[in-house]
Every structure is written in C-alpha cells, then in structure tokens.
C-alpha cells in the first residue's frame, strides 16, 4: 500500500514517538516514593505506567507490521545513538516544578499527536491512537490542574512555575524537530507533521499558561534544542539507559 520511502519515514516517526514515551515514562517513574504529596507520587507513577504502555504499543507496531526487532530488543538492547527521543525527555527529574512543567509541555504535544493519529491513513497507528488519546487526556488534565494551582499560588510557587517554564521551553520546542520523509507522511494523510503540531501546541500551551497567570516565553526568539531525532543526546541519556536495562542485561533470555 505504501512505498519504501513512506514506510521508512513511518518507521522513523513511530520509533521517535515510542522512544519519547519510553524515556519520559522512565523519568516519571523516578518520582515513585519521592512525590511532594502522596497523590502526586501516585499520579506520576500511574502516568509512567501509561507511558510505558504507549511505548509498548508503538514498538509493537514496528515489530508486528514493519519488520523491526521485538519490543524488548528495541527498548533494552539499542545503543544510545540509536535512540531518537528528543532531549526534553532525557533530562533528570530535577525539582518537582521542572518535572511538572515538562509533563505539561510533553503531554499537550502528545495529545495533539495522538488525536491527529487517530485519523491516520496508517490503520495500525490509528487504532492504537484511539486508545491512547483517552489516557493522555487524563495526563494533560493532571498537569494543567497543578500548573494552574501553583501559578496562582504563593509568590514562591508562581516564581518556580515561571522559571521552570523558561527553563523547559527551548527543550520542549525540540520535540518538533523534523525528520527525513516527514513530508511523505503528511501528503498521504498518515501524520499531521511537526510544524502543524508545533503551531497547535503553542496555542494550547499558551492558553493554559495564561490561565495560570504565567508569562509564555516567546518561542520565536528561542533556538529549539534539536538533535535528539538524529541520535544526538546529552550526558543524561546513557546513565538512564544503564539503569533501565540493568536487570534485563543480567539475563536477557530470562522468561518473565
């Protein structure tokens, strides 16, 4: 149905989305036991579990439909430079304000991606997206509720939210790095395309930020932090992969 160039672009898209969800899922899970209040501990842990499920769904399409390695191999046995996740997701969790704002910026984009993908001309992605988008709605609801509360809270919470937003913005713009063959996917109705997603994202994030009483950084004046989609990563990804794969590497053939 699709030619080789289109299928290769599709592989790049699915791998980037899967890697983003796997890595942000791992980072979110690092809040387990550390959340500032019990409810947030549970929320970040539950969201992490959803993200790993979304990554699994995307890796499964690559394996079952597109001839790539099985999900465990893709998740646990690739080198750092084979990961095409954006750099936003690999940064350490930092303080709660950084993680919360990253969660908002990531999930608003993820919701736009999956809502669009639920109408994709590539059926396996459309089916998965119809499931995933309902779950991500809860993630956006969670993030925006807390960002609004803290943005309208004390002087300190407001200042921390603003600084986390400023800190995250150039990294978050790196989510929309274009990739080879993207135009083919847009032409054939498989994918909305990074530029269109970025525009929609700026609108939706801007509205939440305004409601929170914060100031939206001027995206046009920022240099997006690209590179992740091409396998260029910060010093933070390799240690994450080492930790994530530690148990797997003890006995890769183990039955779970």
């Amino acid at each position: 149905m699709f030619n080789t160039d289109t299928l290769n672009a599709l592989r790049r898209l699915l791998l980037a989305m899967a890697d983003d969800h796997l890595i942000i899922g791992h980072r979110n899970s690092e809040w387990t036991g550390l959340g500032p209040i019990l409810e947030e501990d549970i929320a970040f842990s539950s969201i992490a579990q959803d993200k790993i499920g979304h990554a699994l769904g995307l890796y499964s399409i690559l394996y079952e439909q597109l001839g790539e390695a099985d999900p465990d191999t893709l998740a646990f046995m690739r080198n750092e430079t084979d990961f095409t996740s954006c750099q936003l997701v690999e940064y350490p969790i930092g303080e709660y304000d950084f993680s919360l704002v990253r969660h908002l910026l990531f999930d608003v984009a993820a919701l736009i991606r999956f809502e669009d993908a639920s109408h994709s001309a590539y059926d396996p992605l459309a089916k998965l997206a119809r499931k995933v988008k309902g779950e991500i709605k809860y993630h956006v609801f969670h993030a925006s509720t807390f960002v609004k509360q803290l943005g309208q809270g004390s002087e300190e919470s407001k200042a921390r939210m603003q600084s986390a937003l400023n800190q995250n913005m150039a990294l978050a713009l790196g989510m929309f790095e274009s990739f080879e063959g993207e135009a083919l996917l847009v032409q054939q109705g498989i994918y909305k395309g990074e530029a269109a997603i970025r525009t929609a994202w700026l609108g939706e994030v801007g509205a939440i930020v305004e409601e929170a009483g914060l100031k939206m950084p001027d995206a046009e004046k920022l240099e997006p932090i690209y590179g992740g989609r091409k396998g260029f990563h910060t010093e933070y990804l390799q240690p994450l992969l080492d930790e994530m794969t530690e148990v797997f590497r003890i006995d890769p053939a183990a039955e779970w």
Partner: peptide, 13 residues
C-alpha cells in the same frame, strides 16, 4: 475530585 490517579490505572480518588 482529589486526584485523577488512584491505586490502579482505572481509578480516580
């Protein structure tokens, strides 16, 4: 609503 995430993925509190 106290939190949209509960003890299992399908529950809110």
């Amino acid at each position: 609503l106290k939190t949209p995430f509960g003890p299992t993925l399908c529950r809110s509190m």
